[in-house]
Computed example of a mutant assay.
Amino acid sequence: MTTTIPRPAWRVPPRSAPQWALLAAMLFAQPALSAGPGGAPAQATDAALRARSQAAACTSCHGPAGRAPAGSTIPSLAGRPQAELAAQMQAFKAGTRPATVMHQLAKGYSDDQIAAIAAWFAAVR
């Protein structure tokens, strides 16, 4: 008689785009380096840090700072026009642009977050 021992299922549970963004933010976040008058955090600095943290989730596929490796089928995002990046993300979010995973990831971002991420990548040189 042969006894079979069941094997555990080694499966990583799927994560949504906001969960990946939160994970990336925890890994890549840095404290604000400047403050406004009276030592209060500068709103522009906070917004820039939030945008950078949200954009960090994109770097796992699109490369560090949005620069995909040479020969990659995934496009680089760094330095592309903000309007173009935002429009493409909105198309993914609406499901009007075909994709493998981007349509699911884009649904996890608000319109303001998409605009901030597009602005961040557009500013990367």
Rank of each mutant, 00 (worst) to 15 (best):
I5W: 11
A44N: 09
P98E: 13
A48L: 11
A83W: 10
H103S: 15
G38R: 05
A32F: 00
Q43K: 12
A70K: 06
D112I: 02
T100W: 11
A118M: 02
T100H: 13
G108F: 04
A87R: 09
G95V: 13
A56C: 06
A83M: 10
C58Q: 03
A56S: 09
S76G: 15
A40I: 10
Q82Y: 06
L22A: 04
L22V: 07
A118F: 05
T3S: 07
P13Q: 09
S16K: 08
A25W: 07
H103G: 15
A44P: 04
A55V: 07
L105Y: 08
I117G: 00
L33H: 08
A55D: 00
A99W: 13
G79Q: 07
S110H: 07
A44T: 13
I5E: 07
I74T: 12
L77M: 07
A25I: 03
A44C: 05
A29Q: 01
C61A: 03
L27R: 03
A51T: 05
P31L: 01
F92C: 07
A115F: 05
A91E: 02
A32K: 00
Q88F: 11
A99F: 14
A70Y: 05
T4G: 07
R7V: 10
S53A: 13
T100C: 04
L23C: 01
A119W: 10
R67Y: 11
A17L: 06
P14F: 08
M1W: 15
D112N: 07
G36E: 01
A35P: 00
A78Q: 07
A51R: 05
S76H: 08
S60R: 14
G38F: 01
P37T: 05
A29S: 03
P69I: 11
P37I: 01
P13R: 12
V12F: 09
A55Q: 02
Q90T: 14
T4P: 03
A86E: 12
W10I: 13
Q88R: 15
Q82T: 10
A122K: 09
A87I: 07
A118K: 02
K107N: 04
A115S: 08
E84M: 14
Q30F: 00
A68C: 10
S60F: 15
A87N: 06
M89H: 04
R11C: 09
R50E: 03
S76A: 13
W20S: 03
Q90V: 10
P14T: 05
A57V: 03
S16M: 07
L33K: 10
S16H: 06
M1R: 15
L23T: 02
G39K: 09
A106R: 01
G66C: 03
L105R: 04
A83D: 14
R97T: 14
Q43E: 13
A119Q: 12
M102V: 14
W10E: 11
